[in-house]
Design a protein around this nucleic acid. Sequence first.
DNA 1: TTTTTTTGGTCAAACGTTTGATTTAATTCT
DNA 2: AGAATTAAATCAAACGTTTGACCAAAAAAA
Lengths: 325, 325
Amino acid sequence: MTTLKDVAEMAHVSVSTVSYVLNGKKTVRPETLLKINAAIKELGYYPNQIAIGLKTKRTYTIGVILPDISNSFYADIIKGIEDTVHLSGYSVILCNTENDENREMKYLNTLLGKDIDGLVFIGTGKTKDISGKFGSRPVVLVDRKFGNEFSSVSVNNILGGYLATKRLLRDSSDIIFLSGPASVNTISERKIGYRNALVEAGVAFNEDNVIECDFTYDGGYNAIIGILAEHRRIRAVFASNDEIALGAMRAMIENGVKIPDEVKIVGYDDIRLAAMYTPALTTIRQPKYKMGKRAGELILDMIMNKGGEPKQVVLEPVLVERETT
Amino acid sequence: MTTLKDVAEMAHVSVSTVSYVLNGKKTVRPETLLKINAAIKELGYYPNQIAIGLKTKRTYTIGVILPDISNSFYADIIKGIEDTVHLSGYSVILCNTENDENREMKYLNTLLGKDIDGLVFIGTGKTKDISGKFGSRPVVLVDRKFGNEFSSVSVNNILGGYLATKRLLRDSSDIIFLSGPASVNTISERKIGYRNALVEAGVAFNEDNVIECDFTYDGGYNAIIGILAEHRRIRAVFASNDEIALGAMRAMIENGVKIPDEVKIVGYDDIRLAAMYTPALTTIRQPKYKMGKRAGELILDMIMNKGGEPKQVVLEPVLVERETT
DNA sequence: TTTTTTTGGTCAAACGTTTGATTTAATTCT
DNA sequence: AGAATTAAATCAAACGTTTGACCAAAAAAA
């Protein structure tokens, strides 16, 4: 490895001179500049970020903790983050928790030791009290919120639920809500939106119409199979994510119910599959990439300006209409 | 930030003593141990990895360069990598090139400066000569190969093409190969497998049956629409990835051709959608997660054992049969 | 008891930078 | 030409660790 010292020796100047020109903090005589540049090139020198980090307390690295990178929702978010921060010279450390709180804790500690400049945190949601877990560094929460203590970027889930339900209401007032686990915050908000749309339209909210199922393809599938087994008529379904919707559709197709002729469906998220399915799924699009982008901007801002007041940015979901409605 | 020095002062010992106990490199009197541990706890001390890295030349960080994290193929790979290396205390830096060679170059330089311990590289494929780009650190290539100069983990694409074609051959000898860009290595290997299966079965290889299309859903869709427009009869399709297959299916469904009754289809990759589609797609599964896992193991091995001979591991794809055959 | 060995601990240099303080050289002003 | 100013370059300490060399005291061997 070539160091500043090697360069300095070759150029017959001091280490600090080289450092100064590298950082453009002082001017030097044109000829010295030439010598130094020549030496740098000749030796193939590049600065050691570790040493710089030790001195400056800036690592140009941010950590991202998230539940599952192979879930396209999170993949899109991290892509948004990486895309924006890399423009400012930052790298991102990926921490995949697999929804395991212990692993989450472990990563938190690792990252603290690594002296990251900032952290984007998408928790498992199992840990309720996260205050004081981050030390004093900039943190932004994504798709989660804990009061106003931390900066966050989230999307308006109440609106999302409302939009979906309202669309369905055009065709039927009997709408089944295929809910994920009610304990998850985002889900319960979607339910509120669902309810709001209902009461606004003057239709009674009926708890029997909300069915709590696994947050998966199979969850949706089984839920519909269950309903069908009761010989209950289905007219419209709002699924709290797209995979559930797809599973539900599968169950219907298998049982010969026609979509969208007999049943209308709207999902949530707008994952890649949604548009590729046949029939293509109407859904509430989450601005995933944008969430990541805004999170990246927020964290960069906090790093540059040494904190400041926590900011809450909330994005708006949009209904994208396709073939299931 | 609390440092070793703070701990040392509080425990009334020297800095080195604390360091030694932290690393378990020397034994100390039980009472000193107690004092030190107490001080560590009291101060909430955790070691500064940057400083450690500077001294030891070990950052416990590996870089992963890949074309697109929002592509589930790569997402699964990086998940495999992260899962395995994190067990040995390594973090991964994510570098998303967006298939841009300039960005790829930039990341390479950044990572060199960061003093990563190793690099997993999934190039854009546009850069042909990658020798000498990595300096001397451990590198493993995934899903790509450049002679035997570097360690690599890849999957046997010839076998994959063969397996798919052989399955299709059971129903028809007229098999269309929806190829991605022929310039990509993995694709051309799949084509070789396709050809091998054909000749083995004594059916003539017909270049008209291989259709080069975009490596996307739309690519597959358009290709089939094109064929249908020529009133050409389709009996079996081997698509070089699942998205192409899905697009192709869409085109067929729209035109009333029955799958699998009239046309059999097999895709490639086994992405998440494949199983969720209706009809569920028969496909060649790439062991994505395992590829990542093996890559992680390889890089760890190289780090521990200071290099050694480059190893080539090649994994086997498997046919997973679903509803389109 | 004296010498040797072991145990428990400290010293100080080093890793590759940055940067305030300082020195030296070059330029401008009388 | 000499003094004053400015520009260019250097010194040396610091960042938080690790680790080979060293030392003192206690334990074991002579």
